[in-house]
Simulated scan of single mutants.
Amino acid sequence: MSQHAGPRAESTHHRLYEFAKAALTRIFVHPYATVCELYCGGGVDAEKWDEAQIGHYIGIDGSSSGINQRREAWESQRKAYTADFFELDPCMEDVEIHLKDQTNPADLVCCLKNLQLCFETEERARKLLLNVSSLLKPGGYFFGITPDSSTIWAKYQKNVEAYHNRSSGMKPNIVPNCIRSENYMITFEVEDEKFPLFGKKYQLKFANDISPEIHCLVHFPSFIRLAREAGLEYVEIQNLTEFYDDNRAQFAGMIMNFGPNLVDPRGRLLPRSYDVLGLYTTFIFQKPDPDVAPPLTTPLLHDVTYIQDEAKRVASASDDCLEG
């Protein structure tokens, strides 16, 4: 999401994304915790850590301008917590080298943007998750937000199916590569009917944006597999609309602080909010603590079945009509 204030900051999708970040923070972050934020660049929402009363903050970002913005935001605050900042790309470099003598320093590691960029290759995704594992204390959580590839792919497949039904066998080699709603347009860079595990790029452009964001689909079974190999156990991957509905009693009042016209008087998501939030998902993993309880067992998910089941689930839950 954008790191700059301005007209975009007032857009529906930006306000909803900021709400989702604040909601996750409220659930996971406890007072005096040590929190590590991956791809922390920018200082727009830095105050959420102050409000959460954390004890120590570790900011990691590959952009020198981004990390400087974040440092300046911290320095301009009341300094309620201590902080370290590291300029490095966590899907390219070893974090441990920069941490020096600190071993597993973080109670929580979050990645609230850019996780999807790490899924350009398996090597990048693996490096990120190994770094997360080295940062986390036993029992600690890795959580964040990323575009929901299951939802996006289900919409894409629905679009392809509708196109083929309309064309009645005409132009069999042409696959539509766009998904449109009144709020956004998603364009896949390569027309394809297959979901590769890594490197499936697309552009996401919201209605009020000048330029699109470039993302990669996150193949969730591969995400779970690589996390397990790095010593992290899967807890949950949940679409943000479901996440909101499950926690509506807690968050209905809170979401109203992020602007008008997001929910109805009963706190239910309005159609535009549902459409935008539905593009994203939470993810939660935990580093097991062998001294507290036996490690959780992660269910083995067969890739094809998982994606098909997700596609059916999303297709049945979604009533939006997509154009080719």
Rank of each mutant, 00 (worst) to 15 (best):
Y57L: 11
V132D: 01
K79V: 01
I27S: 03
A22L: 02
I27G: 00
F86W: 07
K48W: 04
D101N: 13
N68K: 15
S133F: 02
E93F: 13
E37L: 05
Y57G: 00
R124F: 08
Y39H: 11
I54F: 02
A125T: 04
K100F: 08
L136W: 04
C111H: 01
S65C: 08
P90C: 10
K48I: 12
S63W: 01
L16K: 00
L136K: 09
L24T: 00
E10C: 07
S65Q: 11
L117K: 09
P7G: 15
S133C: 15
M92G: 06
R70A: 14
E75H: 07
Q69P: 05
F19A: 01
P90F: 04
A73W: 10
P7W: 14
A9E: 12
L16M: 08
Q102R: 15
V44W: 03
Q102N: 06
D50G: 12
N68L: 14
D101P: 07
H56T: 07
K113G: 11
L128Q: 01
M92D: 11
V29K: 00
K113S: 11
G42Q: 01
P105L: 14
H14F: 13
K113T: 15
L99Y: 03
E51G: 03
Y81A: 08
W49K: 00
K113Q: 14
A80E: 10
Q53W: 06
L136Y: 04
I97Y: 09
R26W: 00
S134C: 10
P138N: 13
L24Y: 00
L136F: 01
L108Q: 14
L112S: 08
E72S: 12
N104H: 15
S133P: 07
V44S: 09
H13Y: 12
E75S: 09
R15K: 08
S65H: 12
K137W: 07
K48G: 01
L117W: 09
K100Y: 06
C111D: 07
N114I: 03
N68Q: 15
L117F: 10
E47Y: 15
K100W: 03
A9R: 09
S63F: 01
P105R: 01
L130Y: 13
Q53N: 11
W49H: 12
Y57D: 03
L135G: 05
H14L: 10
E120P: 05
G55I: 01
Q116F: 09
F85K: 07
H56D: 02
F86Q: 10
Q69R: 12
K137T: 04
H56N: 11
A80Q: 07
L115H: 09
I97K: 12
Q116T: 09
I67W: 00
T82V: 09
A22T: 04
K79N: 10
L99C: 12
L117A: 11
H98A: 12
R124L: 05
Y39L: 02
I54S: 02
Q116M: 09
T34L: 10
E18L: 08
P7F: 13
D89W: 05
F85E: 08
Y32F: 14
A46P: 03
